[in-house]
Structures are given as C-alpha cells and as structure tokens.
Design a protein around this nucleic acid. Structure first.
Length: 511
RNA sequence: GGCCGGUUCGUCUAUCGGUUAGGACAGCCCCCUUUCACGGGGCAAAGACGGGUUCGAUUCCCGUACCGGCUACCA
C-alpha cells in the first residue's frame, strides 16, 4: 500500500451536525492524519428538496470549532474541485448511461403511482415491503420489458425516467469491513436501486461511488446505517470497472439513545435536556433553535475527546487524550462493533477533566466571554487570572464560571441572610462592625493577614472563628459556596470587602 | 416479514482459552474541607440463554432470545 491515504466526510446539508456525524468526521480525520493522508469534505446535496440554507456553512463552522480542518472541501478548495455534488451533476449521468449500455442498468418509466400500486399489489404478510428486483422488474415499465422502439420513443418524447441498477439474482457479494471483518450479502435480497433520478440528479448510491473514485478515496468510513446498501456500492464499483480502486470500508457503530432504544436523535436531546448537535443550530424555516455542545459550555478538546472514546479505546485505562495523542493511538480495528448509548454525565466529566487540565491562560479568553455574555464587565485580566485559578476545579461546564465567580466582579444581588439569622446576636453584630473597621484600616491585603486579623479580633470578643466564617462568607459571596473566604476577600479588595460586610449588617438590622 | 449487524456491572468499556473478570461515569459510605465543590480512600455492581469444541471457555462454533439498522426517485 503505497497510495496516499485519502478519506472523506460526505454530509448532506440538511441541518445541524450531531454527535454521530462529528464522530464520523473525527475517525476520518484521525485515520488520515495518522497515515499522513488527506481529509476531504464533500457536500452531498443531490436532494434539492432537503437542502437547507446555512447548513453547509454550519458544518464548516463546527469543524473549525472542533479543530478538524479539512485538507480539501468546497470552502478550502483542492485539486478535485468542485466538492459539491450539485456542481458535479454532469458526470453522474454519463456513468449511469455507461452502465445502461453495458447492460448493468436500465431505464425505468414507472410513475410514483405505478410504484405505489406495485407495493400494494405485491404486499403480503410474509413480504410487507416488496422490492423492485429481479422478480418484479419484469412486471414494470422499464427498458428491460418494453420494446426497444417504445423505449426510444419515450426517451425522445422527454418522458421522465430514472436509471436503476440491474442487480443480479442469487450472487454473493462480500467485502472485508475494517471493523466487522468479512460481511456478505446475497444479491437476491438487494433491490434495483435508483441510480439517477428523474430530475437528472444522482442518488447517493451512484454519487458516492463516482466521487470516491474521482477523488481517489482510499478508505471510506460511514455510519452503520449504510451497511445494508454496501452491496449496491460494491456492485457499482465492479460494473464501472473500478474494482481495483475500491476503497476499504469501515462501518461505524451507531450512537444510541440513553435509554437504549434506537439511534440518538435531536429530539432525545430536547426531551432529556442535553445537546445533540455540536453547536447551536437554528432551523431557517421554522426558526426552531437547538442547543449545541459549544454553547452549553463544552471545550472543543473535551468534545473531541469524549467522542473518540464513544466506541473506541486504546486498550489501556487512559481516557483523557489530546488530539495529537488520539492521532497517534487511534486504530480502526479497536473500534467497537456495537452501538453505544450516550451518557451525558460522562460527557460532562470529560469537560470537567479538560477544564482542570487546561492552563489559566488557555481558559482566560473563553471564561471572559462567559462573563461578558452574562453582562459582567471584566476589565482587570490580572484579577480574572486569580478568579480562574480559584474556581476552575469546581467548574464542569464553561458557564459554571459565571455562577462560581460572578461575585468576584459584582456585589451579590441576593444575600442568604436566612442562613445567618438563627445564630445572629449583638456580640456578632459588634464583631463585624469592628471587623469592617479593622479591615478598612489594613495596610496589607493578603489572604493570610486577613485571616489572622479575624482570629485576633474574634479572640478579643470571645468568639470562635468557626461561627464567624459562615456569616462572612455570605456577606462576601451571597451564599454558601465558593473558594476560601479570605482568598475571596483578597481578590475582591478592601473596598468591596468592607462595603459588603456593611451592606449585610444593614440588611440584618432591618429584617 | 426479510436481510444485515450487535449482545461483559445501570452506562462507556478492558480481556487477543487459564484473571479474586480490571478501569471510568453514575450511586452509596468514609476522610479532607471553619461553606460548597475538588480531591483521597472504600462499598456495591456484569459475561442474555441453551448446546457443543476443549483438560479448561466471557473469549471459538451452532441454535435461541433480545436489541439495533435497512427495507424511498432521503441521505
């Protein structure tokens, strides 16, 4: 094998990119990069009725966010352009005609009504979905049955037609799947799939073969849902005379619903409250918005990591991988055969690990965005740095930084005074009045000094420091959470600390 | 219905015939913590079923069951 590895991801621009799609991209990308090959993105927009404005752009934005940049694509260019199938329309027809001439395909003039009638007429209890195949094609209106003159006449009249592959009876087609090993089919079970539609556009089956050949694709990875149509593709590679160039196939396992039944869909995310798409997607027709992992506060590193481990592992206990480590460790034969149920809790764990793993500088920009997005001004990057250092270990998602850290920048809008009141008395009130005064006149403003000051003052008032910590925390934070109180005081500064103590003292007095 | 694929703790998974079947998430308990988390330690938890093959099967073969995918002029 001295051919340069070339793989492709071939999405249809019909909506947001979901987990499974991104994982397919990832595995393609990892395989290509590991072998020093090329990763191509080809847009399969052969069905105009399903075309969705903005979907292609969304796909590339997603890939960019994930850091999975194509070497060739409609937006990156490349030697095999165009990379949109709608722009390669002419070539498909030529190959379809070639197949007809060679006797491997035929014209079919059946109307949608004809087809529907056939499916009803031949439907039986044992065979609820009759196929257009070697037994039924003799009963339909196609160039195999019609007299040659009539076929030419229909064609000359411009009557709508499709070209269907003539799948042979009772032949065995098999291939070696990189994940599943040898898989074989009997052609009697596969129907005469439409290759070229009445509008002159190819179906997926023809287009994928023609383009994989044209673009010199060496390895084709796609979801398991494509396994049943593999024999059609195999036949096409053979009939077109390109068998020697056929890529190696791998059919990836599906990502399933958490409760187990069926493949994961956008709806499941809406229903169960977690993202399924990589990034936010707004349907241009309905205006319906679907949340994405990015906007939910996931790091791209974590997203890629969790996707890689969904159906693959390196055989060790390692779970946290950088993209470079994934490129080095990945192997298709370690991809699982069975589908994996998606577990959002585990997904969050990956993100948590990545937040802890990244340096404060790497986090800075993202965290700043979170604060700004929530209307919190962050102009002191030195302070931001300290805040991140203090709270990063307690954040699972990026937006947790806001909950965990907004009080560093703005005074809390709510104070949980209810938690102070039961044990509040005049002695404590006096203590805090004096603490505020003492802090106000502090010269140094370091965490350890602030703690020392409080303890000394507590001793003077015959109070135990322990019973003062909670009130002080609530004064500074608003609630019962956050890092060490004195660390917080050190970061928010003298003025804010004193002000917040006095604010809560005021609240307690008036309640 | 047919065809194809799959089946190890609740979930993701390790195991390339011989293990007390390992790890991670979630759960529970303990420790740490003058808050809440993080963290540390621990507990509980699995080979779908039935036949073979073998000295020995989670691992190989067959059957059954269950789950999934496909069965469009959609991808």
């Amino acid at each position: 094998m001295d051919k340069k590895v070339r793989v492709r991801f071939a999405p249809s621009p019909t909506g947001g990119l979901h987990l499974g799609g991104v994982r397919t991209v990832l595995f393609n990308y990892l395989f290509a990069k590991q072998h020093g090959g090329d990763f191509i993105v080809r847009i399969e927009d052969t069905d105009q009725s399903r075309f969705v404005e903005g979907a292609e752009d969304y796909i590339f934005k997603t890939l960019e966010w994930c850091g999975l940049i194509p070497d060739e694509s409609p937006q990156h260019g490349g030697p095999f352009a165009p990379y949109r199938q709608s722009e390669r329309k002419a070539s498909y027809k030529q190959y379809a005609e070639q197949l007809v001439t060679a006797g491997y395909a035929y014209y079919a003039f059946d109307t949608p009504e004809d087809l529907e009638k056939m499916r009803i007429d031949y439907k039986t209890a044992e065979n609820p979905s009759p196929q257009y195949n070697y037994v039924l094609r003799s009963k339909m209106r196609n160039s195999l049955n019609l007299p040659a003159e009539e076929v030419s006449k229909l064609l000359a009249e411009g009557r709508p037609f499709v070209i269907r592959i003539k799948t042979p009876e009772n032949e065995t087609v098999s291939f070696t799947d990189m994940i599943r090993g040898e898989v074989s089919f009997n052609t009697s079970q596969v129907d005469d799939k439409v290759l070229l539609k009445a509008d002159g556009m190819p179906t997926y089956h023809l287009a994928v073969v023609v383009d994989d050949y044209a673009m010199k694709i060496t390895h084709a990875f796609r979801g398991e849902e494509w396994l049943p149509s593999a024999p059609v593709h195999l036949l096409l590679w053979k009939y077109l005379g390109w068998e020697a160039e056929m890529p190696q196939w791998a059919h990836l396992p599906l990502i399933l619903k958490p409760e187990g039944n069926g493949k994961l869909s956008k709806r499941d995310g809406d229903r169960l409250g977690f993202p399924v798409f990589a990034m936010d997607w707004t349907d241009p027709k309905t205006g319906e918005k679907t949340i994405g992992f990015k906007e939910r506060g996931f790091l791209p590193e974590a997203f890629v990591n969790l996707l890689a481990l969904l159906g693959w592992n390196d055989g060790t206990d390692t779970e946290i991988f950088t993209i470079e480590q994934l490129i080095a460790a990945f192997s298709m034969d370690r991809v699982h055969k069975g589908g994996a149920k998606f577990d959002y809790e585990k997904a969050k764990w990956f993100n948590h690990e990545w937040i802890k793993k990244l340096s404060i500088d790497q986090l800075q920009l993202l965290v700043r965005e979170q604060f700004i997005g929530n209307g919190i001004e962050v102009n002191d990057s030195n302070k931001l740095h300290k805040v991140i250092e203090l709270v990063k270990d307690r954040c699972t998602l990026l937006n947790d930084f806001v909950q965990q850290g907004s009080f560093f920048f703005n005074s809390p809008s709510q104070f949980d005074t209810a938690s102070i009141k039961p044990k509040w008395d005049a002695v404590k009130n006096m203590f805090f009045i004096e603490l505020a005064k003492a802090y106000e006149s502090s010269i140094v403003w370091e965490s350890s000094d602030l703690e020392k000051e409080l303890k000394e003052l507590a001793a003077a008032h015959q109070l135990k420091p322990g019973e003062l910590m909670l009130p002080l925390r609530i004064m500074l934070v608003g609630g019962k959470f956050g890092p060490g109180v004195f660390d917080i005081a050190a970061v928010i500064g003298k003025e804010a600390t004193v002000e917040r103590i006095r604010t809560v003292l005021g609240l307690l007095e008036h309640q």
